[in-house]
Amino acid sequence: MALLDVQNLSVRFDTQDGSVRAVDGVSFQLEEGETLGLVGESGSGKSVTNLALMGLVPAPPGVVQADHINFAGRDLLTLTAEELRQLRGNEISMIFQDPMTSLNPLLTVGRQLSEVLEIHQGLSRREADRLCAAGLADVGIPEPETRLAAYPHELSGGMRQRVMIAMALLCKPRVLIADEPTTALDVTIQAQILELMTDLRERHGTAIILITHDLGVVAGCADRVHVMYAGRLVETAPTAPLFSLPVHPYTRGLLASVPTLTGDPTSALSSIEGQPPDLANLPAGCAFAPRCDYAETRCRSGPMPLEAIPGESAPRTVACLLATEIAAASGGAR
C-alpha cells in the first residue's frame, strides 16, 4: 500500500465573490522513498493541495473534502486538530520557498532547530543541541556547532535553506513536502540543494513531494511528475516519458517555453497565450481549452477525466480528449 494515498481531494474557498475551487478532484499516491514532482503555474493549486495534506488550509473560508487521505494507515481527514499537530513536523514535514523569511529573526538557529525536538520528542535543551548539531552536519553545514549560536541574518540564503531542511528532517519524517525549495536561490546553490535533497532521500528513505514550476528541477529530481492546471491534475507520468513525449497540450506548452542552450538566442521564447482562468468562474469542459492550440468544440463541454493513454507502456494518464491523436502524431515525429 502506498505511504500516502489521496483520493478525490477538493479544496474550495467560500468568498464573497463566490466559491473558488482551488483544488478540484485531485487523486495521487506517494510511495515510500519516492520523489513526486508537482508542476504547474502560479495559482494552479499545487500549494493548496499540500496545505490540505497538513491540515493547514485556513477554515473558514477554506473547505477541504476528499474521499480519503490515507497516510500510513490513518485517514488524515478523521484526525483531530491536536493529532494533526502531532503529525506535523514529526511524520510530515515541509520546507518553504523563501528561506530568508522562514526563520524567526529573533531566535538563534540552534534554538529554532531544537524547538522541533522539544515539541515532538520532549528532549532537554542539551540533548536537543547535540542532535541539532548532527542535523546541521547532515545537511552539509561546516562547523555546525558554531552555527547553532548564529542568528538567521548571519547566514547566507543557501545556508538558511539548509537549516530549514535540517529542521524539517530532524524528526525523521516519512514525507517531506518541498514547496518551491529552490526558487529564491541562485542557480549554483539550487543545484547543491537539490543534490542534497536527493542524497538525504536516499539515506533516510524519506518520500518527497516536490512542488515547483521549474521543469529543470523536476527533470533532475523527480521519479514521477504530476502536472496541475486550474486545480486539476491534467497529466501524470514517470519523469522520463513525460519529457520525451508530453501529451497534454498544457504540458507541451510548458516544455516548449523552457529556454535551451542550443536555441537561437535572438528568437522569441515560445509562451502559452492568454491567462490562467478565474478559479471562481471556470469554463465548462477542459479548463485549458481557451488557451489551447488543439482545442475542438467537444473540448468545451463535459467532464475531462484522467485516462490512460492507449498504446503507452508507462503508467501514465492524461486529461485530454485528443490525447491519442497528439501522442500518435508526436510519437510518429520522434
Binding site: L56, G89, F96, S102
Partner: peptide, 11 residues
Amino acid sequence: EFIEAARVLGA
C-alpha cells in the same frame, strides 16, 4: 513565513 513554518513543524 516563519510563523507558518512553526505551524508546519507542529508548534
